[in-house]
Write a protein that binds this DNA or RNA. Structure first.
Lengths: 214, 214, 214, 214
DNA sequence: TATGAATGAGCATTCATTCAT
DNA sequence: AATGAATGAATGCTCATTCAT
C-alpha cells in the first residue's frame, strides 16, 4: 500500500513511457512480426524518441523478451489453475487448457514465435531466455501431462508420438489464425467449437487406434 | 507452333539466363529463406549481374512468386496422379497425397509461406497471384475431395469442419519442421510414419465421432 | 581567511562530489583513454548521476583540462625540487628530472596529449588553457635550464636546437610506451636505464659536437 | 600498351571515383585522424555517396590499409635505393634514409599511426595486415642495419639499445611535427637540418660512450 | 544540489533498386 | 541482352548533452 503511494510523478511518467513502448512494440510485433518492425517505428508509435527505448530495454531482442514474459506467466498460472480443478474430467481439462492456450496465442500473436519455436531466440546465451524457456517447457508439460492421463494404456513411444500429433493440430490452428484479422472474440467464437471437435476426434481416434492394436 | 520453332539464339540465351536466375533463387530461398537472401547473392549464384535480374523480374517479390509456380504445378500434378490411381483405397490415397504435400513443403521451405498463407502475398494486385491462388486452392481441393470420400456419411457442415481440422494437423506438422535443419531425407524418415499415425488417428476419430452422433 | 572557515556542510558535500568526479574521470581516462570513456561511466565510478557532472564541468573536455592541472602541478613541484638539490650534478639533475617526467607521463597516459601537444586543446578560448599552457611551459623550461647548464659553451642557436633534439628523444620515448599495457613499474624498470643511456649519449654527443666545431 | 588502350570509359570513371575516394580519405585522415573522420565526410569530400565507398573498399579499415600500402612501398624502395648507393658513407646513408623517412611521415600524416604503432591495426587477423607489417618491419630494418654498421664495435645488447634510442629520437621528431600545419616544404627546410644535427650528436655520443666503456 | 527522463545527431554498414552505357 | 556504377533509405545502436523537477 505504502509502496503504491510513494510513487513520485517522475516514476509514474517513467512507467508510462515504458509501458507505452511495450504496448507499441506489442502492437507492431503482433501486426507485422519482429523482424519487420524497426526501433524507430516503435518509438514513433510510442510517442518517444528511438533512443528512449534503449533507456528501458537493452536492445530489440530484450524488448521482445520482456514483452513475452508477463503474459506467459499469466498463461502458465491459468493453465495450472485449470489442471487443479478436481471436478474436471481429463478430457474436459485438456479441452479447457487448450482453449486457454489458443486464446492466449491469438491475443498475443507476436509471441507465438517465441512460444512455438522449438529453438527459441538466443538459446545459447543462458540467462534471460532460461526463464522463457523454462516457462514454455512447463506450458507444454501441461498438455503432455493431461494427455498421458487420457491415453494411459499406451506405451511410452505411443505417448510421445500421440502428444506430438496433438501438438501438430494445436500448432496448426494457432498458425492458421495468427494472420487472421477478424476481431478476437468473434474469431474465437467461431473456432473454439472447432477446437473442441478436433480434440474429440483426436482422443477418439487415439483410443480406437490403441484398441485396434491391442 | 511457328512461335515455338522460330526461337532465335538470342531468345534461347535469354531463357537460359532467366531460368538460371530462377534456379539460383530457388536454391537460395529454399536454403536460407526469402529475407536472408540478397539480390546480389542470387546474381552471383546465377552467374549474372544483379541488374540482369531486374530484366526478367519486376522485383524480388515477383521473383519469389514466379519461383513458386512451377514447383506448385509439379506438386499439383503429382497429387492428381495419386488420386487417379484406382488401386489405392481412399485412406491410402489421403496418406500418399499428404506425404507428397509434406515432402514438398519441407523441400521448398521458402514457398511454404506462399502456399499456406490464407492471404497470399499481395492479394491486392490481381493478376500474378491469381494463378498462384488458383493452384493453391486446387491443391487444398485434393485433400477436401479425398477426405469427403472417407467421411461420406457426414453432413456438409461436418465435412467442412473435419477438413479444417485435418488441415490444422497437416499445417502444424509443416510449420513445426520448417525451421528444422536436419537433412531432408533423414527428417522425412523420422516424421512420415508420424504423419501416417496422425492420419489414422484422425480418420478413426472422425468415424467414431460420426457414429457417436448417429 | 573567513571564506575558508565559513564552509557550510553543503559546500563541503559539493566539493566532495566534485573531487569524486575528478578522481573517477582521472582513473578512467588514465586506464582507457579520453575517447573510450563515457560520461555515464565516469558518473557510475564517481557514484553520482551523469547529469551532475555538468554541474561542475562545462563539458567532457573541460573535465579533462581541470583533471590535468593538479597532477601537472605536482610534477612541476617535483621537478623544481630536484633542480634545487645542490648535491646533484647537472647531468644527474637532468637524468632525475627526465625520469620524473617519463614516470609521470606513463602513469597519466590520458594527459600526455595535453602536455605534449604543441597546440593544446582549444587554444582559441583563452582562459582555462592559459594556466595549463603556463605550467607546461614551465615544465619544459626545467629541461631547457638544466640542459643549458650542461652545454654552456654553445651559442644561443645551438642551445635551442640541442634542447629541441633532447625533447624529441624524450617525446619519442613517451609516445612509444604510451600504448604499452605492461604494468607500470615493470615497464619503468625496463626503460629507465634506457633513458639514462640515451641521456649519456646525447650529452656526450653534444659535447663532442661542440668541440668539433670549436 | 594494348591493355592501356582497352580501358573503357566506364573503367576510367570507376578508377576516377576510386581514387577520388582514396584522395579524399587520405586528406581527411591526414588532417584529422582516422577515428575522427566519418565515411559520410569522406564521401562528401570525394563527391559521391557514402555507399559508393563500399563498392571499392570493404570497410573503413580496408580503406586505411589500401591507403597506406602504396606510399609505404614507395618509401621502402626509396630507402633501399639509398642503401645501395656505394658512394655514401654509413653516416651519410643513415642521414639520407632518416630524411626520407621523416619526409614521408610528414607528407602522409595519417599513416604515421600505422607505421609507428608497435601493435598495428588488427594484428590478430592475419591476411591484409601481414603485408603492411612486413613492410614496416623492413623499413625499420633499414635503420637497424645502417646503424649497426656505424657502431660496429658495440656488443649485441648495446646495439639493440642504441637502435632503440635512435628510434625514440626519430619517432619524437615525427610525432612532434605531425600536428604541425606549416606547409610541408617550409617545415622540412626548417627541421631537416635539425635532424642532421641530431644524428650527428647521437652518433658522436654513441661512439664516445663506447670508447668510455672500452 | 542533484537527478532521472529524454533526445538529436551521429556512427558504420546493408540492401533493393535505378541509371548510363 | 546485359552490366558496372551509383545511390537513397534504412537499420540497430551509442553518446554527450539538455530539460523538468
Amino acid at each position: 500500500m505504502e509502496q503504491q503511494r510513494r510513487k513520485t510523478r517522475q516514476e509514474l511518467r517513467s512507467e508510462e513511457t515504458k509501458s507505452s513502448i511495450r504496448d507499441a512494440a506489442g502492437r507492431l510485433f503482433t501486426a507485422r512480426g519482429y523482424d519487420a518492425v524497426t526501433m524507430r517505428e516503435i518509438a514513433k508509435e510510442a510517442g518517444c524518441s528511438h533512443t528512449t527505448i534503449y533507456l528501458y530495454f537493452k536492445d530489440k531482442e530484450a524488448l521482445l523478451e520482456q514483452l513475452a514474459l508477463p503474459p506467459l506467466m499469466v498463461l502458465e498460472e491459468t493453465m495450472q489453475a485449470v489442471m487443479n480443478r478436481p471436478e474436471l474430467s481429463s478430457t474436459e481439462a485438456l479441452k479447457e487448457v487448450s482453449r486457454q492456450f489458443l486464446r492466449f496465442c491469438l491475443s498475443h500473436k507476436s509471441m507465438v514465435t517465441i512460444i512455438l519455436n522449438v529453438k527459441s531466440v538466443r538459446v545459447d546465451e543462458a540467462n534471460p531466455d532460461a526463464d522463457i524457456n523454462r516457462r514454455r517447457n512447463r506450458i507444454f508439460g501441461c498438455f503432455t501431462q493431461i494427455l498421458n492421463r487420457v491415453i494411459r494404456p499406451a506405451s511410452d513411444e505411443e505417448k510421445i508420438n500421440y502428444t506430438r500429433i496433438y501438438y501438430y493440430m494445436l500448432h496448426g490452428m494457432v498458425t492458421t489464425y495468427t494472420e487472421n484479422e477478424e476481431p478476437l472474440e468473434q474469431l474465437l467464437a467461431r473456432i473454439l467449437p472447432l477446437l473442441d471437435q478436433a480434440i474429440d476426434i483426436l482422443l477418439l481416434g487415439m483410443q480406437a487406434k490403441l484398441e485396434q492394436r491391442g
